[in-house]
Nucleic acid binder design. Structure first.
Lengths: 176, 176
DNA sequence: AGGCGCATGTAATTAGTTACATGATTCA
DNA sequence: TGAATCATGTAACTAATTACATGCGCCT
């Protein structure tokens, strides 16, 4: 249900198309939420039915038409109500790698190190991309405090993960 | 689908009842996965159908009977195959608070601080509980490397979160 | 000629949550 | 006597994923 408020949050900044919502979501929210275009389009339809958003159809002659969504008064009210009144649900993480970590005792040291190296590489590349995005937003003059805070979260999360991996490698070596 | 391997991982350590699986899951895997007893019992049934686990019924006279599950050879093989062969899926986080963070610009400073304080308190209590568990496992002589690594992950995650919150508060104050 | 970006959707399936349902034992 | 722990399940619903489906314009 929270996906709805993520989308409402995006549209609240400025009117955008469904396609834009998907793009912005993947740029800015990938650090703390996940979704697909398929779910997003469906949720946009539901929100429109419930009068939280409306759209204006923009006919673009040659290129495909697009729907530009914006918040209704009710949508904005509901977004703020949710933010300040709705009790916070605990964060949910689904991290496959840490499941694999729990069974390290039945894997060989070589296999463990291979897995750890893989995840280190992945996290390095995520971190690099996040830092790139941070620079990008910065250079675009995007000083939205929400963006600043959540991008910083993404960077800190990846850094923590990498440090933990380094520590884990040491632990494995010491135990062997 | 990964929930299956989380459960297989638990049962691989020693034969346990469904109830035990639920309990262990909530103690040890809460930092990186989430599920409910309802989903777990269903998955156990499916895994038994597919010959990855079997159970022995233990009749306990007065208290309710229980099913003690253990891995079949096929189950163990599949668990290891998954761990070393199956390509790693990226971690998925669903953190409501960070959605709320994205709309800080339309909230008052007071509302923002209230939200941040709430989340700081929550994270403090999670961290305290995690540290408690770490001591508990330690004192029980549980030196399973999987447990050591994942509990440490939980601690580092909470600490990162708290430091980020502190930094966020400072940012908000500076901006105001 | 092929791939990427823009642009929007539906269908089928699987995963996950919440509520319903029961019942004994143990401890305060 | 009421709450917590042990113990197991099903039903109804919602959320989410993957695959299917289309098509133009632009760049190389």
């Amino acid at each position: 249900m929270s996906i709805r408020y993520a989308l409402l949050g995006i549209i609240s900044k400025k009117p955008v198309t469904g396609y834009d919502v998907v793009t912005i979501f993947k740029q800015k929210m990938i650090y703390f939420w996940s979704s697909t275009h398929s779910q997003i389009y469906k949720e946009l339809h539901k929100m429109e039915e419930e009068d939280l958003i409306t759209h204006q159809l923009v006919i673009q002659g040659t290129s495909p038409n697009k729907k530009v969504y914006s918040l209704t008064d009710q949508g904005k009210k509901d977004l703020i109500r949710w933010a300040i009144e709705e009790p916070l649900k605990p964060a949910k993480i689904k991290d496959e790698f840490l499941i694999k970590t729990t069974i390290f005792p039945i894997l060989s040291e070589e296999e463990i190190n291979q897995l750890l190296d893989e995840v280190i590489e992945r996290e390095h590349s995520i971190l690099a991309k996040t830092k790139e995005w941070k620079e990008h937003f910065h250079s675009q003059g995007d000083s939205d405090i929400g963006t600043i805070l959540t991008v910083e979260y993404g960077i800190r999360y990846s850094e923590m993960y990498l440090e933990w991996c380094k520590w884990a490698k040491q632990m494995i070596q010491d135990k062997a």
